Amino acid sequence: MRMTVLNNIYLRFSSFIDVMETLDPQILTKQLDVSKSKSVGEHMWCLVGARESYARAIIVGHWDGFSCSLENSKDLNQIIEKLKTSGQVFKDAVDSVSDWTEERDNLLVHLLEHESMHEGQLIRHIFALEKDVPKSVKWA
């Protein structure tokens, strides 16, 4: 089951790269006229931070707090770079673990849920702005 969860996480990682590489940079800061709306850039900040934070949690074996290295959620090139590097940081963390515990497995599921939730929100956001997402995006 762990490999199924990891494969789905890595598919989400790839999906976000596909979306960002085809996105008009002007969309990064556009808000929807609904309560608690996050911009695309704000979603990306949350994703990058979660990947980095869950990577650290996987290594130490429990949740260890949230931090994010993405400094500018309005810079598409920085977002793409950080999506790629945070994905690799997470993969490296997973590859470094030899003692898989129930807590570590739960952390994997939590990250998958987080990625999936943001992917759905992002798709809805982009469609609400009357833009398209790449055909490679599973849920669109």
Rank of each mutant, 00 (worst) to 15 (best):
K131R: 13
D92V: 05
V40I: 15
I123G: 12
S35M: 03
A57L: 04
I126S: 10
G65C: 03
L129D: 07
D33V: 04
L76M: 09
S98N: 14
P134Q: 05
H110L: 11
I17A: 01
K30L: 06
E103F: 13
L112M: 10
E119L: 15
S69E: 11
D105Q: 12
V40A: 05
S53M: 02
S67Q: 06
H125V: 08
S14D: 13
K131C: 14
E103P: 15
E102F: 13
Q78S: 14
D18Y: 15
E113M: 12
L129Q: 14
M117A: 14
E21P: 01
S15A: 05
R104S: 08
Q26T: 09
N77C: 03
S96I: 07
K30I: 09
G65I: 02
S86Y: 15
K38F: 15
Q31A: 02
T101R: 04
I27H: 00
L108A: 06
K131D: 13
K38I: 02
D33P: 12
R104M: 07
Q88I: 13
S96D: 08
S98H: 15
K36P: 03
L28Q: 00
E115S: 10
K84R: 10
N77F: 12
T101E: 03
V48C: 00
M117G: 15
L111Q: 02
K30F: 12
